[in-house]
Amino acid sequence: MRRTTLTVNGVRHELDVEPRELLVLALRDHLGLTGTNIGCDTSSCGACTIHMDGQSVKSCTVLAVQADGAEITTIEGLASNGEMHPMQSAFNEHHALQCGYCTPGMIMAAVGLLQENPNPTENEIRSDLEGNLCRCTGYHNIVKAVRAVAAG
């Protein structure tokens, strides 16, 4: 077991984790933050996307101990003062989700995308979201939602 400090959604936690424990399992099993989902075991689907020190990362490819000292934002920490983040509202407004399972990761990836490129073209949105799989929507409305947020 390794003592690991994670600041998640502004709250500092000290955890004892096995060195092989994935960050996503530390978030889900130790901290009860189950909004971050697991969809594969090969870093392909992006359902587990979170923000770590301001970057969007797949939390299944990071060991919890590697995140020691990091600032982490999960889907649960995206809304502020009870107000949904504009990306969350846009996903609702543009029907960009169906089963909702890929949605937390997709939203975190989309927010990260706009932080790096505030005015992406449709093609840039599509290629930047390549790391996140959705089986329900055909991506059509996800792209629409991201464009709407970018347009303000």
Partner: peptide, 11 residues
């Protein structure tokens, strides 16, 4: 959607 986009949906 509100539960799903905020991570509150329970699978």
């Amino acid at each position: 959607d509100p539960a799903m986009v905020t991570g509150q949906a329970r699978y």
